[in-house]
């Protein structure tokens, strides 16, 4: 029983324990968070096992991206925030099969490895893994990138019903009225367009505000003497300002269109920073 064993036992317990909550929790959102815990514990296991890069990728991709994506999905599907009753179906078959799988695999693995000691290899650095990936495994790696691209495109196409949708030639010249289907598409589309416009306006405003804040800060530094102004500037939360201004900058129906991006001379300059 070494330190590594103890660490692995602890991390394994955390991973399995939170895994149990993932599959039993009645809160959708909580299940997601338990998943974060479980995956994090697994990342720890990777660290113990010497696979550093995998561990960090695990944290980045899984905890950082996948779980967040899932939580977004939970929200977008308007799942209830509190506990839900109808998340599960009868447990017996699932328990039987799951238990069987677990028992079988455990027995198999325990029988295979017993209580054998293994020497841990030196921790694999990113450099070695990188050499491998771009040496022996470069072809699968490139294929994977294509797969990712395909998944990207596929996800976009799937989530946007307006792509590739053609007007029905048999429908005749009558675009008025709600389109068929269980969802009121037009409302959806209008809402999304509105959201996009909001986001654009917010981004423009944020840039403007940051520049303004920076200018103000400069000026504040220059005018040290004017302590009153300095104090005011320090107390101003730029984020709150952005949010506040964004609300003000929301485009009104019939109002002037938001300014085009190219009229922002400050943007290229920021990239140079």
């Amino acid at each position: 029983m070494t330190v590594a064993d103890a660490l692995m036992l602890a991390l394994g317990a955390i991973a399995v324990g939170s895994g149990v909550f993932v599959v039993t929790s009645t809160h959708l959102v909580r299940a997601g968070f338990y998943l974060v815990v479980s995956l994090g514990a697994i990342a720890g296991l990777y660290l113990v096992l010497g696979a550093e890069l995998v561990a960090w990728v695990q944290i980045l991709v899984y905890v950082g991206a996948v779980v967040v994506l899932m939580l977004f999905a939970v929200m977008l599907t308007r799942a209830p925030i509190g506990p839900s009753k109808d998340l599960d179906r009868p447990a017996l078959p699932a328990a039987l099969i799951g238990g069987g799988v677990g028992l079988g695999l455990t027995v198999l693995l325990v029988d295979a490895f017993r209580w054998t000691e293994f020497e841990l290899p030196p921790p694999g650095t990113g450099r070695r893994v990188g050499e491998q990936i771009f040496g022996a495994w470069v072809l699968p790696f490139e294929v994977l990138s294509i797969l990712l691209l395909a998944a990207l495109v596929g996800a976009i196409v799937l989530s946007r019903p307006d792509i590739g949708a053609r007007p029905d030639p048999n429908a005749g010249p009558e675009p008025e009225g709600p389109p068929p289907g269980p969802v009121d598409e037009s409302e959806e589309v209008v809402a999304r367009l509105q959201r996009i416009a909001e986001r654009q306006a917010a981004a423009q405003q944020r840039v403007r505000d940051q520049r303004a804040a920076a200018e103000r800060a400069e000026q504040a530094e220059l005018d040290v003497v004017e302590g009153e102004l300095v104090e005011e500037a320090r107390q101003t939360d730029p984020l709150a300002d952005v949010v506040l201004r964004a609300h003000e900058a929301r485009p009104k129906p019939g109002g002037p269109p938001p300014e085009p991006k190219r009229e922002l001379p400050g943007a290229p300059e920021r990239e140079e920073d």
């Binding site: 179906r89 078959p93 699932a94 099969i97 069987g100 799988v101 079988g104 198999l108």
Partner: peptide, 20 residues
């Protein structure tokens, strides 16, 4: 779909058990 998934997994379990 769930029943199909259960069937597939049960089948895999069975096959694994047989193989072992």
């Amino acid at each position: 779909l769930p029943a199909a998934a259960a069937a597939v997994l049960a089948g895999a379990l069975l096959l694994g058990a047989v193989a072992v």
